[in-house]
Amino acid sequence: MIKVENLYHSYNNNEKFQAKNVSFEIKEGEVFGFLGPSGAGKSTVQNILTGLLPLQKGKVTVDGYDLKQVHNKRFNRIGVSFEQSNIYSKLTALENLKYYADLFDVPTRDPEELLKLVGLEGKGNDRAGSFSKGMKHRLTFARSMINNPKIWFLDEPTTGLDPAIAATIKDIIRSEKAKGTTSFLTTHNMYIADELCDRVAFIIDGEIKLIDTPKNLKQQYGEKLVEIEYVKEGEIYKETLKTVDDSDKEKIANIIKSYEIKTMHSKEATLEEIFIQVTGRGLI
């Protein structure tokens, strides 16, 4: 559905790239996660895919359309949920959805039903401007589904939402996946990536460091970790070390020899730990 080859992007058109040699492919029906810390370039790549940013260098095809050319019609099959909610504050929630629906040439979903889906039932006739941040975000999210998209771009769909609502949003994404919708999801929340994505890409400083399924990643990295808690000069230290790494092995031996061990167990790594291992940086 989506194919990106050697994509580069520089906002200031100079040699400092905010996306560097990005390549990946998303198959139909797949939920693909873009995982990386703030400023990594996740939104930049997504905005190129949705045509919000011009394609500077590289080859990108989305749904069979080469992005070198502008094809407005392709948006009939695309839905975009924005990182920052962007709705008409002067229109009511229902009006926002209705007028948006009118912009498409394909059958659209019932606005009332969408509002209900994201927990905004009964708010349809309120001005969107009077909504809380989370409500606006949900309205933006609901709007992205109005045209029954086959390709769905979700930029931080659950960020800033309370856990219950975030769970609702996750359920919606899962049920869309069950319908066969292809999704491109950016997040810096590894739980979301773990729970929802078929595959994740680790991105940092505009570069993809790794692409794999969460399961593979955990198998590959997870079982070979040891978490040690020990007392050194009266203070408790905690370290997570790799059992395959020579220097780590030496460290483990050293700790056991020299200090008092409080706890020690091998564990399955979280995606976050794997991310730190792979990229050397956290998912802040």
Partner: peptide, 14 residues
């Protein structure tokens, strides 16, 4: 300011 132009830009409307 409201960012609605972005929402407009990802529809089949020109």
């Amino acid at each position: 300011d409201e960012g609605v132009i972005k929402a407009f830009a990802v529809t089949p409307s020109s």
